Amino acid sequence: MRLLLVRHGETPSNVDHLLDTAVPGPGLTPLGEVQAAALPAALADEAIEALYVSTLLRTQLTAAPLAAARGLEPIVRAGIRELSAGDLEMLPGDSPGGVQYLRTVFAWAAGDTTLRVPGGESGDEALARYDAVIAEAAASGAGTVAMVSHGAAIRVWTAARAANVDAAFVAARLLDNTGVVILEGSPADGWKVLSWQGAAVEPAGEPGPTGEALDSAGFDAAGLDTAG
């Protein structure tokens, strides 16, 4: 299956760099609406057969122009919502609580999935719900599936599940609003990233882009999808 993981368009909380992860969440800014309107053209070469969105309003608004252009009915699934900020909800990304959230979710990407966000979920729980939606899409038989989801969730799931990228790779690479990560594979055979926001990604074991050391520099509150 070809899997397109698309970050939603810009929201007011993105602009303010807040940990805004609760349902239903904010809508899009005027720029976010422009970004959403550009998605059909950006993905014109993709033979999308199914379109998934999360339970957060911003993903549904982002997907609407693409759904209309392709005649697809978006499938709403809570499993691909943003990684819950729990007790840290609505804190600035560069606050102590915001840094704690970012360090926790990137620890999940590196394999320490038993850690839990205060008042929120563990890495095991977050990855399991995301896996379940991916598995549903794969079982549908669709050749190409697009999922409009959230920056932290996309980056963490990709690092945890794709064979050719890791936590350092995703920590060193931002995912812009309506940025797209393209993967290929299946739950049974595993996944590999083909491109990250338009840049080709080398197969595992071959020379290619590498991540920076996984430290606070990788947890930029403006770049990480702290607002989901």
Rank of each mutant, 00 (worst) to 15 (best):
R7H: 12
E10H: 03
T11F: 03
P12G: 03
P12N: 08
S13W: 11
N14K: 05
H17W: 14
D20S: 15
A22E: 04
V23L: 11
L28M: 10
T29P: 05
P40A: 07
P40T: 09
A42C: 03
A44I: 05
A50F: 05
L57I: 11
A69H: 13
I75N: 01
R81I: 00
A85Q: 04
A85L: 07
A85H: 02
G98W: 07
V99P: 11
V105G: 00
A107N: 08
A109D: 13
A110D: 10
T113L: 07
L115N: 03
V117N: 13
P118T: 10
G119M: 11
Y130G: 04
G143W: 04
V148Y: 01
R155H: 15
V156F: 04
W157K: 08
A159G: 11
A162V: 00
A163F: 04
N164T: 02
D166H: 12
A167L: 07
A171N: 08
L174G: 15
T178D: 01
G179E: 06
S186G: 00
K192W: 06
L194E: 05
L194S: 06
G198P: 09
E202V: 14
P203E: 05
P207A: 09
G211E: 12
G218T: 02
A221L: 10
A222T: 09
